[in-house]
Nucleic acid binder design. Structure first.
Lengths: 141, 141
DNA sequence: ATGCTTTAGTTGTACATACAATAAAATGTG
DNA sequence: CACATTTTATTGTATGTACAACTAAAGCAT
């Protein structure tokens, strides 16, 4: 059977990698009680209290509507809080969110250690850099 | 603000690329009336009539339950049909599905041409190969 | 100052995807 | 052969994610 079109198509290969690494990342982030994406959102808010949702959605490269949903959930869990400021919304960390910072960093470290063990540190680093630059090119399209 | 942890984390970078290229792929596949993933599923079925769901989910690297949902949808659209064979399910193309083959191939070509125009053919090819081999390594974990 | 345009965020809706629990068939082992 | 184990598929449920339509605020132009 001819299924070579799959491995030569970047839509397929990129999403396949996404699924594979998401699974691993979710395992490592489990102790934080958050999925990786939420963990990174918390880190951004902790490191820049009062950041706007716009900035957050740009940094995370997700749609504004997606971000609204994420913040809704983190607010319910009292990890961050919104302060409406005209038409923009500023997002601030709450004590429970700040307390998670260390745990989240540990999860990130374990995740990285785990995939570097399989891929080699050097390859993994170059891969992440290539992924970023590819995304940046494609997002301009 | 320190947000370097994002670009150095493969969970983030891989999924970001996934989102970016999915958007492009969906645009190019729009004329087929299918999303890219369904298009590729049809191609696999057309090229191997009677393929089992298990094989399909392995080739596409998606969970069996996800594949069940996909086939449900394609069956509703009369693009493929199931034939139960003991505990396995064989999937066959239907005329409407076969008729789509050309259109799907064209969409794939446009997609590839589009990202190669931005990234360069060589880089894109190497990237896809690296993505595959990275996935394979990680999936073994 | 009034009205047009752009920007930020939210809500409704839809889809891809997964996991856990289940059913049913196949396989292996005493 | 009968029972336990493994394999294949399905279903219920949950999450991430997006787009389109909308609301409200801000900026701009006459």
């Amino acid at each position: 059977m001819d299924d070579s079109f799959l491995s030569s198509c970047m839509f397929f290969t990129a999403n396949r990698l996404g699924r594979a690494i998401t699974k691993i990342a979710e395992e490592e982030f489990a102790p934080t009680g958050l999925t990786p994406m939420y963990g990174y959102l918390i880190r951004l808010v902790n490191s820049a209290p009062g950041i706007t949702q716009k900035e957050l959605s740009e940094k995370l490269s997700i749609a504004p509507s997606t971000l609204t949903r994420f913040i809704d959930k983190l607010e319910t869990k009292q990890l961050v809080e919104r302060k409406v400021h005209g038409k923009t919304v500023l997002v601030y960390p709450m004590p429970k969110g700040q307390a998670l910072e260390g745990e989240i960093r540990n999860a990130s470290k374990r995740l990285k250690a785990r995939y570097e063990a399989v891929l080699g540190e050097e390859f993994a680093t170059r891969m992440s850099m290539d992924l970023i630059s590819t995304s940046e090119h494609l997002e301009k399209t």
